[in-house]
């Protein structure tokens, strides 16, 4: 119940404001805060409102020169067409979920190893290697994708889940390794020493002591990798050439913006269906993310 409850993890927030200061607040200050926060809410929600209502309008209403603020003729036809015969929307969804999730799990595991090595290792060139790893993220995908296509072709990775997952993982590793390094840096070495005294081996220390302590960090890194993969347009666009294997971003792009017209209603319906589960998942783990960010990636530097 509380685990799913969408809230940011600030359990001490209400206590930290003594009653005296609350009373001291002037009404105009409260009003200013209220106005700005309301504006912030409008800013965040208005586009989402527009996305949802557009998905419920028919094609004619969607392209009206004077747009209607809410659907005058409510219709579910945009949603119906998503699951009709014409569009493999459910396979887009499946491909996106599978590849992004697997990439997130693999990338988190590999990043955690790399982060541990970068954080605790004593080898030479450690700092340099870390910087090189980070630098690989700087080169634009657009430049990389041509040669990458060639490698994937030679290794038969084109048009496969493996290829996409490898692409996503590699794209996420530079930041992932650095984030995990930050999280592991934040784990006091004394704890490891204590564990050693208790008879744990290195593996035991890593898996039983260090990684459990960085659990929020693992979640945070995982969420970042997942979002990166989920939003990636260029890799699937280039490395996948069958519609059945395609993921959501290029699937949406090719299906709704064709040579004939742009189907706003259909695209927004697809957008709603892809956004909602993501929001739910996102809210479920955001407590970990806040804790993770606080503990390691940001504060630990």
């Amino acid at each position: 119940m509380t685990a799913v409850a969408p809230r940011l993890d600030t359990p001490d927030a209400p206590v930290s404001v003594p009653i005296s200061t609350r009373l001291r607040r002037k009404p105009w200050k409260v009003a200013v805060v209220a106005v700005i926060v309301t504006a912030g809410l409008f800013w965040s929600l208005a586009p989402i409102y527009w996305m949802v209502t557009t998905s419920l309008k028919n094609p004619l209403e969607v392209t009206r020169l004077n747009p209607t603020l809410y659907p005058h003729a409510l219709t579910g036809q945009n949603y119906g067409e998503l699951f009709g015969q014409t569009l493999p929307f459910s396979s887009f969804l499946e491909n996106s979920v599978v590849t992004s999730l697997v990439a997130a799990v693999i990338a988190v595991a590999i990043s955690a190893f790399a982060g541990y090595s970068l954080s605790r290792g004593q080898w030479r060139l450690r700092g340099f290697t870390g910087q090189i790893i980070l630098a690989t993220r700087i080169l634009p995908l657009v430049v990389l994708v041509g040669p990458l296509y060639l490698i994937f072709l030679k290794t038969h990775l084109l048009n496969t889940y493996y290829g996409l997952i490898l692409g996503y993982t590699s794209f996420a590793l530079p930041f992932g390794a650095w984030m995990m390094k930050g999280f592991i840096d934040a784990v006091p070495r004394e704890i490891e020493e204590a564990a050693r005294v208790d008879g744990y081996g290195r593996i035991g220390i890593l898996f039983r002591v260090v990684l459990p302590l960085t659990l929020p960090g693992l979640f945070t890194t995982g969420a970042f990798v997942f979002m990166d993969a989920w939003n990636n347009l260029l890799y699937p666009l280039t490395l996948i050439d069958s519609l059945k294997m395609q993921t959501l971003p290029p699937g949406l792009l090719t299906s709704f913006t064709g040579q004939f017209k742009t189907d706003w209603g259909g695209m927004m319906a697809a957008a709603c269906l892809t956004t909602i589960p993501l929001m739910a998942a996102f809210f479920a783990i955001q407590r970990y993310m806040v804790r993770g960010l606080t503990a390691g990636a940001l504060a630990g530097q």
Binding site: P6, R7, I48, M51, L252, L253, T275
Partner: peptide, 21 residues
């Protein structure tokens, strides 16, 4: 506190959708 949650929602919208929206 749910206000904080709501303020985070745009992050869940896929980037390609944001562009078209």
């Amino acid at each position: 506190r749910y206000i904080r949650t709501v303020l985070l929602t745009p992050w869940a919208v896929p980037l390609i959708v944001v562009a078209f929206l």
